[in-house]
């Protein structure tokens, strides 16, 4: 068997089939998490057949919308080789604004949300121009988001404008909203990032910044664009969270920092080289979400949820390392 594999590899290299190999690697990148997701769903459906209905899926996937948009925000940042440790508190801040300003003074509320997206682009610019480590800047920003959230809404409460919960309670025909939104987001993200020329440029910033710069593209503009995308996704995630919770809380988003990073990595993304896929990220977000449901079906205390999420991340990265060894 190993001899066959080596022979095959040698033949592949001899035939100059590097492209085919790359394509297979890309297929595996999304294929593995997709297979894992199918297994998880099968187990859940086997244990809880009622989940296999329109209503059952809606309940099971209740918090999908904030999770997939938070993961998308994280993906945009990881695409340039950075990491965002402040996305959780950022969701909380959007949540607090949506539960207060957006209802009482809508124009002000929307301006505040637009300013947050601009702040994200500014953060990307600062990191690029001063060559700062994203980890420290986004951690520092997490204090700013948390502080602003506490200023807007010192204690949990408030109420969003009526249209917001209504929007996220919408029941489209045939396909539950979480499923529909996931498919649309994955398709849109996949198209924008993988099939448009600027999408290729943006991904190139993480992989080959010098090549992109030599080709005449602005690295600064690219990083700002990706950070603005992250900010916009974060705002949508925060609004979705508010629509589902129908109240504001300055700490509600904290868990999304870990789950968003895990979603990107589990979905096939890597920290080096701008390797991310929107489709994989959405699948990764589902896996992290369903891991929680699976825990409760198995009667395991939610105390261990963080362990399971962190554990999944470690196992996936560990398997990838083993894979690299066997390939080398």
């Amino acid at each position: 068997m190993p001899a066959d594999v080596t022979a095959e590899m040698a033949a592949g290299i001899a035939a100059g089939a590097g492209e085919r190999g790359a394509r297979r690697a890309a297929a595996l990148r999304v294929g593995l998490p997709a297979a894992a997701l199918v297994v998880m769903l099968s187990v859940i459906f086997a244990m809880q057949p009622r989940a296999m209905s329109y209503f059952g899926l809606s309940v099971l996937l209740n918090f999908t919308l904030p999770a997939i948009f938070a993961a998308m925000a994280q993906m945009a940042v990881i695409a340039v080789g950075d990491i965002d440790l402040g996305i959780g508190p950022f969701l909380s801040l959007v949540n607090c604004i949506a539960a207060t300003l957006l209802a009482t003074r809508p124009l002000f509320g929307w301006l505040a949300l637009a300013a947050l997206v601009a702040a994200y682009a500014g953060m990307g610019a600062l990191i690029h121009v001063r060559r700062l480590p994203s980890i420290v800047v986004t951690l520092g920003a997490s204090f700013v988001w948390l502080g602003l959230a506490l200023l807007v809404l010192p204690s949990p409460g408030g109420a969003p404008p009526g249209w917001l919960p209504a929007l996220f309670a919408w029941q489209p025909p045939f396909v539950p909203l979480p499923v529909l939104a996931s498919i649309l987001l994955a398709a849109l993200g996949q198209f924008l990032l993988m099939h448009t020329s600027y999408g290729v440029v943006l991904r190139g910033i993480g992989g080959h910044p010098r090549a992109i710069a030599r080709a005449g593209w602005s690295l600064l503009a690219g990083r700002m664009a990706l950070y603005a995308l992250a900010g916009a996704s974060g705002v949508i995630a925060g609004l979705a969270l508010t629509g589902l919770n129908t109240a504001g809380d300055a700490t509600v988003g904290a868990q999304y920092t870990l789950t968003s990073i895990a979603a990107v990595i589990v979905g096939g993304g890597e920290f080096v080289g701008g390797i991310v896929t929107p489709l994989g990220t959405v699948i990764g977000a589902w896996i992290m979400l369903l891991a929680g449901s699976l825990l409760s079906f198995l009667n395991i205390s939610t105390d261990w949820q963080l362990s399971v999420q962190g554990g999944i991340l470690i196992v996936v990265l560990g398997l990838r390392a083993l894979n690299r060894w066997s390939a080398a």
């Binding site: 800047v137 920003a141 204090f143 700013v144 948390l146």
Partner: peptide
Amino acid sequence: AGLRYVVTGLIIIGVL
């Protein structure tokens, strides 16, 4: 507490 967090965060980013 809110403003304390904001100021601390800004100091750290600014000094960095």
